[in-house]
Design a protein around this nucleic acid. Structure first.
Lengths: 229, 229, 229, 229
DNA sequence: GATGAATGAGCTTTCATTCAT
DNA sequence: CATGAATGAAAGCTCATTCAT
């Protein structure tokens, strides 16, 4: 329905709703807490974690300074509260289909997988742009974050992606190159598009479908011309 | 050989110490100033600019805190003094050969260009790893930095790279895909290798020559297996 | 009687505590804020504005240093908060009787006016001695202060005093000398008494009534002996 | 002589020359030292002693920072070096004629004395305006200064002025009022003119001769009209 | 729960003073 | 003599955190 399709195109500012929903399954959040998180996401992504004053978050959240510390013992804990759940959801599409240990690859071709992967992560990145920016900025400086990322995100994603890659290698859809390299090529190319699309030239008019097609074709066949022929 | 030609380009980068310290160009730097810069690079890259206390820089540089401010009026000025010259040197290999407006492409094949480019930038990134990390971390938050980067680095590099790309497109060595996309694919793939190599898995034993070969082959021909068809 | 009428004017000044603390007018002040102001007045008048450390104010006010800056964003703002209201009250007796534009001179003789004026300002100066000292010390160096003084205090007082002076000149009670000179003579003589009384020889035993009588007689008749002939 | 009278009208900025001459009798000053003093006078009078940085003095004097401390061990010593000699010269006209204890009053009338006194001190104040400003500003805060002023200046001047006053009281030229009061009246009136003339309205066009006449007439006869007569 | 006044450690920056050259 | 690099104590100010209300 129109409802749904437009919902998919929701403004980036509403990213928190989705986030909150996934949290609300665990614990209820008060409106104050929600606006604290909203404000913190806003200011952290704009100024960086260290350069952000809790007083500014409080002001933007229309909340007393003390209230922030009622919910989150320290400023760092507030950071983790924002970034943790989003990191979990980064891997959702990879683990969802992997439950009960069955290695099932629901794609007929690597191309199909690639397209689903890029489209899906583009959507995710669009919705969680600010939080992702925070994650990337702070991972180098927050050991807790890096550890969580390595253990809960990267390793699980890799595990899954390795399986998929080798699945298609066996099917002959991928050339016989070490799996880590193939994964690196794929992710580099996909991430290159996402970054250009959302960060470097966000205001440019993009034809996503076309660009994704180009990107996939590149991943599969490269950019080398065949003049020899 | 590619080895030699890139080595020739490297020679510009090899002066990095002198150039970073701008000894050969503007004024001499005192040992104190040098150790301030070194300490600042160390701590900024380790903790981030905002989270770094000038007192820590002073301590690491074995210098009184006031001494820092004799050389750099503010902490931000110190940041720019570190980052500015390095940004200039990021583009050195691109502008060097572009002098007097002649569009000369000193490579017979795109592959040759690619190899020279990757080898050269890998060397540069290895030597300037910490500073590059600082640049990447602070560009989103320091308008002065972003502006300088956009105007002095990115635009000049792109201008040159566009010329090179279209040169090889005309020679039929590259497929007929919009130039921006080709550049994006190339840079994504190269950067993907550099990041993995230096940031994500720096401790892994890397066979650079082999990996660069793989990466170039990927850029030119992709990872799609042909036999499946 | 002069006594009564000046007492009536004094009543405005007698509220100095409340008024300085602006309790009756704008907002309530906390005890901490009051003791900050009191400590600041003390130390500023004793050491001068520039030579006063905020840490000393904090210590004297039994308050953490940060608390000062909760109430006053900068040290200079604290100065203005002390000095501003007092400057306003310097002119109170002059504007009070000037309401609704009517030029009324509630004194039968210049002598009566003089006595009321000197008594009233002596009282005011006695009560606000330290603040006045601060004002005088800082006016040459604080443009904001000087401007405020010129526009809000001096011009209004002069306007009123000119009117009074010309009123008594018309009545023949004052000789025909340019009004600015007359005002200068009067204020010099009155201020000369106040300064000697409060600043130069504060510990001397003063018979104020007698000295004021002498001063008024001087202003009116000078010190020239008549028998010279 | 013409020499002398024009020398008396020297521009205010050359006040230091006169000062230096009076010092040079004791010890030679180097050009550096002179420009340090000049610069210090300038900046102290403009910003106040405490708010002045020695670095600014050095800069304005075209001298290295260390040079200042070669001549004056501390910043305060520099202040005293400026202010001390000038204070001595404040009393010059009073002590000059008082040598060998003879009480000689070289004036036939108090009026004559007054005129000489005011003209002379106006000239002095004009030449030493900036230094006098510094003296007045810093006396409240520098005990050393206050002590020197009290002992070396005020007491000697008073001693002399008391003698003069009583001389003319005996001659019947002054009314029989306590001498301290008479002195106060005289000095207040004279100082009132000097301050108005040099500080409050320096840019106004003044007819000094006329104003001094008015002031003297005021001191002697007051401003009271004689309508009753 | 929610507040926001209060804190004090710590920040960046200034500055009088020293001293090797 | 003169310099100016170097110092480090102290300045003004910020900010994460606490706690009485």
């Amino acid at each position: 329905m129109a409802e749904d399709s437009t919902a998919g195109q929701n403004s980036a500012d509403e990213q928190w709703i989705e986030e909150l929903l996934s949290i609300s399954k665990e614990e209820k959040m008060t409106p104050k807490q929600i606006s604290i998180l909203q404000a913190a996401i806003e200011v952290f992504s704009e100024k960086g974690f260290s350069a952000t004053a809790t007083s500014e978050i409080a002001q933007k959240a229309q909340v007393a300074e003390g209230t922030i510390f009622r919910y989150y013992k320290t400023k760092k804990e507030l950071l983790l509260a924002i970034v943790g759940p989003t990191m979990s959801r980064m891997i959702a599409p990879f683990v969802l289909r992997n439950f009960n240990g069955v290695l099932d690859v629901p794609f007929d071709s690597y191309e199909e997988f690639l397209r689903a992967f890029i489209v899906n992560r583009l959507e995710f990145a669009r919705k969680n742009f600010k939080i992702i920016k925070i994650v990337i900025q702070e991972i180098p400086f927050q050991p807790a974050l890096r550890e969580q990322f390595m253990e809960n995100v990267l390793s699980k994603v890799l595990e899954r992606v390795i399986a998929i890659t080798e699945h298609f290698k066996e099917k002959g859809q991928l050339i016989d190159v070490p799996t880590p390299a193939i994964i690196r090529f794929t992710i580099s190319s996909a991430a290159g598009y996402l970054l250009t699309r959302l960060l470097l030239q966000p205001e440019k008019e993009w034809n996503d479908e076309e660009e994704i097609d180009l990107t996939i074709r590149f991943i599969l066949h490269g950019i080398g011309g065949s003049p020899s022929k």
